[in-house]
Structure formats: C-alpha cells, structure tokens
Amino acid sequence: MKALIVIDFTKDFVTGSLPVGQPAVEIDETIAAVTEAYCMNKHEVIMAVDLHEENDPYHPETVLFPPHNIRNTEGRQLYGRLAQVMEERKTDIQWMDKTRYSAFCGTDLELRLRARGITDIALIGVCTDICILHTAVDAYNKGFHITVYEDAVASFNPAGHEWALGHFRSSLGASVVKASETVLA
C-alpha cells in the first residue's frame, strides 16, 4: 500500500514570510498533478502542514526563522493549484498539522499509515533539505520504503537541495525519481 505525504506547500513557504520562491513556484503544477494522481489511484494522501502559534517563545524555530505558518493566517493556506485540488478532493485527502520539521514528530502519522497497511511513502513539497529530509529520515528509521519525486520538491538553498537528494539515495535507500517520468507518465 502507498501513501503520498505533501509537506508544507503553503503560501508562506512558497512566496510568503519564509519563501522558497521561484523553485517552489515552478513545481506548483507538478505538486498538484501528483496529488491528483494519487487520489485518482485511491492511495492515501496526507497534507502535512506546519503550524505555529503567534509569538511562541518556546518553539525552537522562533529563533531560527521569521514567523511563518501562523494559525489562522493566509500564509498557512495551501499555495496555487494545490489549494484547488484540496478543495475538489477534500474527501480523498487527510489534513494533518505538524509542529516540527518531521511529519512524524509529535503526530499520529505513523499510526495512520500502519492502520492502513501502508509500507511505501512518497514525499513532495518544501523544503527538500529541512522538512522533507527530516520526514524521510524518520520514515527510514521506522522501516518505510521511500520515494522522493525530485521534480516536486524544492528549497531556498540550492546546495542543500542537491545534497538532500543525494542523501535520500545514498543513506536512506530512497527512490529519487521524476514524477513526470513515473507517476505522471
């Protein structure tokens, strides 16, 4: 069984207060198309979306990054065509708040996946070298098979993006493939 985890593709992370910028804008259509394909094939689809509280002095990211993905703000809304896909397929997609880089940390993600017999997960979204990376490491340590669609992940750090893609392959045994040549072909 397969699941797609769409990580942090929100307005704040694409063009907002902590923007990946053009690299994220360029994958908007691929993110939406992969999400639709997984829904159409009846695979589990989970939106793992960063959540922060305004002026939270205890969250470790408060000192590392500007405020972003604050509860009930426009910046926390899904970006671009993915927002439309979510609206059209809301019965096929699960929303999951996360408060750390990894979608597994402090959430019931593993429980959701195990309950559905899922052994293979695919990761898309931003940032390749932060939230995608930490989610992939946790998935590896929990025994999941991992696919990363390299044309559906992006980062504001080009060197970090390339390093993470290599790390997925060499240290996590992940399949790093193009969605355009596999799931969307």
Rank of each mutant, 00 (worst) to 15 (best):
M1S: 15
L4F: 12
D8V: 02
D8K: 13
V14L: 06
G16M: 07
L18K: 07
A24V: 06
A24N: 05
E26S: 10
I27R: 01
T30D: 04
I31G: 08
Y38A: 08
N41G: 06
V45I: 10
I46P: 02
H52S: 03
H52L: 05
E53C: 00
E54M: 12
D56C: 11
D56I: 10
D56S: 12
P57R: 05
P57H: 11
P60W: 15
E61Q: 12
L64G: 01
L64A: 14
N72W: 04
Q77E: 10
Q77N: 08
L78V: 06
G80I: 03
I93M: 02
E110V: 01
L111E: 13
R112G: 02
R112M: 04
L113C: 10
R116I: 00
I118T: 12
D120Y: 03
I121G: 10
I121E: 11
G125A: 03
V126G: 01
C131M: 09
H134R: 12
D138T: 14
H145K: 15
A152P: 08
V153N: 07
N157G: 02
A159D: 15
A159E: 13
A164D: 04
F168V: 02
R169A: 09
G173P: 03
G173Y: 03
G173D: 03
S175L: 12
V177K: 14
S180P: 02
